[in-house]
Computed example of a mutant assay.
Amino acid sequence: MGKRQKLMKEYGIVLIFIVLVIVMTILSPNFAQPKNLINILKQTSINGILSLGMMFVIISGGFDLSVGSIVGVTGVVAAYLGMGEHPLIVGLLACIGLGALFGLTNGIGVSVGNLPPFIMTLGMMTGLRGLALVISGGQPVTGISKEYVNISSGFLFGVIPYLAVYFLIITVICAFILTKTVYGRRVYSCGGNLLAARVSGINVKAMQTSVYMIAGIMAGIAGFLLTARTTVGAPTAGDGYEMDAITACVIGGVSMNGGTGKWFGVVIGALIISVIANGLDILGVSSHYQKIIKGIIIIVAVLADVNGKTKKA
């Protein structure tokens, strides 16, 4: 493989994103308006945080369908704790703690119980969605404080949305962990060959459990921020978010077989999803068709991944 081919394979997703932005701008001049671009950043931030958590799970060879439901549960809890009676940090820590607990449950079920990730997280997805409805009484939780709302509605230096700042900070942390630490290398090792990782002395069960905890923590943070953005703790919030997170990872080059993927690809993948959704909304395309388009994107991305591996073999 030549140098140019390697660069295209590594950074082709960035070129695709740039072309997509140009096309959307041509089709609708309103797309490039500052107000709309800020809205895209806000949309990307929550899904992007969720996608970064999903990235760890998929690279390690796992799969998590429960993150959207974790967003729903933690969002409801955050709304109850964010009415002004408690410091905001209490709500954030509660969301992080619950996310970690749910992720730990997933991890134990997969690593110790030897349940297939799909089955374990599907069960959690269904159960937690029910838990969100029970906690909220089936109704949206309203009345959150102005201070809580400002967490997502404010701007740094009057220009950069706070949500984008949170996303940037979390991205830097995840990128460092994945690329500069022993833990990150072990995540890739587990996804590349689980047996080889075990033989080399890696505590595979602990690694599997930890990546699900990371995904749960990210979902908890996303739930906390989503409630601040929507000003309501809806038990149905986060519905389908797991698909957006998986799509961002797949588009960004994270292999569904595990062992491969870059953090910046996931970030660009999340941006692409937001740009497509936002652009199609501006163009008046029905949300039903948007789901069809998203499904096609997932299939094409996975096919490209599978064909790439076949050629290597």
Results as ranks from 00 to 15, higher is better:
127 G>W: 00
278 N>D: 12
54 M>L: 12
145 S>K: 08
38 I>Y: 13
308 G>N: 14
19 V>E: 00
221 I>R: 10
186 R>C: 02
116 P>V: 11
162 Y>R: 04
153 S>K: 15
40 I>P: 12
118 F>C: 03
290 Q>G: 15
177 I>M: 14
290 Q>W: 06
147 E>F: 05
49 I>N: 13
83 M>C: 04
229 R>H: 09
7 L>E: 01
185 R>M: 11
211 V>M: 06
7 L>I: 15
255 S>Q: 03
302 V>M: 09
32 A>L: 15
181 T>Q: 10
148 Y>D: 10
232 V>F: 08
10 E>P: 01
256 M>P: 03
57 V>P: 05
251 I>V: 13
141 V>R: 10
257 N>W: 09
236 T>Y: 08
128 L>M: 13
305 D>I: 11
136 S>H: 00
176 F>D: 07
92 L>W: 10
282 I>C: 05
29 P>A: 01
215 A>E: 07
67 V>I: 15
221 I>L: 14
130 G>W: 00
211 V>S: 04
69 S>K: 00
89 I>K: 03
13 I>Q: 05
223 G>F: 07
37 L>K: 02
54 M>R: 02
173 I>C: 07
97 G>F: 13
206 A>M: 11
146 K>Y: 11
40 I>G: 09
1 M>P: 02
246 I>Y: 12
311 K>Q: 10
274 S>V: 11
229 R>Y: 11
293 I>L: 13
271 L>I: 11
42 K>Y: 13
203 N>Y: 06
107 G>V: 04
254 V>C: 12
116 P>K: 08
141 V>Q: 10
227 T>W: 05
98 L>D: 02
96 I>Q: 11
27 L>G: 01
27 L>W: 02
87 P>V: 10
276 I>L: 15
303 L>R: 08
197 A>R: 08
129 R>G: 13
148 Y>L: 06
46 I>N: 11
30 N>C: 00
272 I>N: 10
142 T>G: 05
143 G>E: 14
115 L>W: 13
197 A>S: 15
133 L>E: 02
124 M>Y: 00
157 F>Y: 12
98 L>M: 14
67 V>T: 15
280 L>M: 15
200 S>N: 11
81 L>I: 13
243 M>I: 14
99 G>D: 14
26 I>F: 03
93 L>W: 05
